[in-house]
C-alpha cells in the first residue's frame, strides 16, 4: 500500500492533466498540536503529497527558513518518534493523501533502520527522503524500508551527470525528486529552460514521476514548474507563510491551507495556458 499510495497520488494528478502538489511542513513547528492542525488542512487545499520534515540539530542542506523551523520544532521537544505519531494521527483521518518523511540520517540511525521502517509503516508513512544518505550509503536503509514497502526517494540535482544519474535511478521507487537549485533549500531557482532539459534527461532514464523542488516560492513559479514536472514541491515558502502567520497572531493552519490552495489553483490552470 505505501508505495502504491504515492504512485496513485501522481497518477490521479496525471489523469486530471495537472502536476501533483507536494507540500513540505516541519513536524512540531510551531508545536505538535498546531502542526497537526496544519497537516489536517492540506488535503482539502489540494495537496497530493505531504513531506513531513523531522528536525535535526545540524541540517547541512537547508536554508534559513527550514533551519529556523527545525530549531522551533526541537524547542518544542519534537523527536522522530513524535513525528511518527503526528503522521499516524494524520493517516487515520486522511487515507488517500500520500505522506513521506524528510530529514537527516542520524535520528534514523539512532532509531534503528529496521525499527524505523516498521514503525513508519505502522504509522501510515509511505516513504522518506534522507538528505545525507546518497546511494553509496543508503543500501541498508533502503533494504529495511523496502521490506515494509516504503519508498526511499532519491534526489537528482543539477550536478548529476549521465553516469551519476544511472547510479541514482538504480533501485528507486515512488517518484524522483529533481532539486532545481545547485544549493540549499529555499535558494534561488535556476532557469526553467535548464530545468526542462535536465528533467527531460531524467524522463528518458526512468518511467517514475518527476517532482521538482527547492526554490519554488510563488503560485507563478509553481505554475511554470507544473508545465514540465509531474509534481511541484513547495517547502521553505510554505514554512515561512505558516511561521509569519503565527508570529503575527493569525491562524497558521488557515494561512498554510490558503497558500496551498493558491498553489494548487495555479498548478491546475498551468497546463490550460500555452507553454511560454
Amino acid at each position: 500500500m505505501p508505495v502504491a499510495r504515492l504512485t496513485n497520488a501522481f497518477a490521479r494528478a496525471k489523469a486530471e492533466n495537472r502536476a501533483a502538489l507536494v507540500a513540505y511542513v516541519m513536524a512540531g513547528d510551531p508545536s505538535l498540536e498546531s502542526c497537526a492542525a496544519i497537516l489536517d488542512g492540506l488535503p482539502g487545499a489540494g495537496v497530493d503529497v505531504i513531506e513531513l520534515g523531522f528536525p535535526f540539530t545540524d541540517p547541512m542542506a537547508d536554508g534559513p527558513s527550514i533551519q529556523r523551523a527545525g530549531i522551533r520544532a526541537l524547542k518544542k521537544g519534537t523527536t522522530l518518534r513524535k513525528t511518527l505519531a503526528l503522521a499516524q494521527a494524520f493517516r487515520v483521518k486522511h487515507p488517500k493523501t500520500a505522506l513521506i518523511l524528510m530529514g537527516y540520517l542520524n535520528p534514523v540511525e539512532t532509531f534503528g533502520y529496521q525499527e524505523f521502517s516498521k514503525e513508519a509503516a505502522l504509522a501510515g508513512v509511505d516513504g522518506a527522503i534522507i538528505v545525507d544518505a546518497p546511494p553509496e550509503e543508503d543500501g541498508e536503509l533502503r533494504a529495511a524500508m523496502a521490506e515494509q514497502d516504503l519508498a526511499l526517494i532519491r534526489l537528482v540535482t543539477p550536478t548529476s551527470d549521465a553516469k551519476r544519474l544511472a547510479t541514482l535511478l538504480k533501485g528507486v521507487t515512488g517518484f524522483i525528486y529533481y532539486v532545481s537549485v545547485a544549493g540549499i533549500t529555499g535558494d534561488k531557482l535556476i532557469e526553467t529552460a535548464d530545468i526542462a532539459q535536465a528533467v527531460g534527461q531524467v524522463r528518458l532514464a526512468s518511467p517514475l514521476p518527476v517532482a521538482i523542488g527547492f526554490g519554488i516560492k510563488t503560485p507563478e513559479a509553481a505554475a511554470n514548474t507544473a508545465k514540465i514536472a509531474d509534481g511541484v514541491v513547495v517547502g521553505s515558502a510554505l514554512v515561512d507563510v505558516i511561521a509569519t502567520a503565527y508570529e503575527t497572531g493569525q491562524n497558521g493552519a488557515q494561512a498554510g491551507a490558503s497558500f496551498c490552495q493558491s498553489l494548487s489553483r495555479a498548478i491546475m490552470d498551468a497546463r490550460l495556458e500555452p507553454i511560454v
Binding site: A61, L155, T157, T159
Partner: peptide, 20 residues
C-alpha cells in the same frame, strides 16, 4: 574504497556534493 574504517567514515553528504 568506500572511505570506511570498519563501520566508521563514509560519505554522508547531500547528493549535490557527491559528484564533487
Amino acid at each position: 574504497a568506500q572511505g570506511r574504517f570498519g563501520q566508521f567514515g563514509g560519505r554522508f553528504v547531500a547528493e549535490t556534493l557527491m559528484p564533487n
